[in-house]
Amino acid sequence: MQLIDSDFLNELQEILEDEFCTLIRTYVKDTSARVDVLKGAIQNQDTTSVYEVAHSIKGASLNLGVTVLSELCLQVETAAREGDLTVAERLFDTINTKASETCRVLQESYLS
């Protein structure tokens, strides 16, 4: 599965015009920060916080057509809502890697 959906992003670029770069920068900045928050929340066993931050990454990613990352976060969110943190613990490393890769690809494709 591709990390990003280029057709989807191109359409967004058409709508947003100059604001599109702001969108990419905001997403990259927010996502990196949120992955750090997720890490801390898992360490603190803070279920609510895990649920909220996974929900945020999922939502923002969905809207940019970043499907892989949003699917991973959906699993974490769903389990955390039921009070289950094992999924978050198991998937965190993958999420961390995919997030970094996604951000890099986005920056290379649209900001250079």
């Binding site: 604001e19 809207n63 940019l64």
Partner: peptide, 16 residues
């Protein structure tokens, strides 16, 4: 919306 990237997208569509 607390999510800034979501706001940017919505604002873009609505303004358009």
């Amino acid at each position: 919306d607390d999510n800034e990237s979501d706001r940017i997208i919505l604002k873009g569509i609505v303004t358009k």
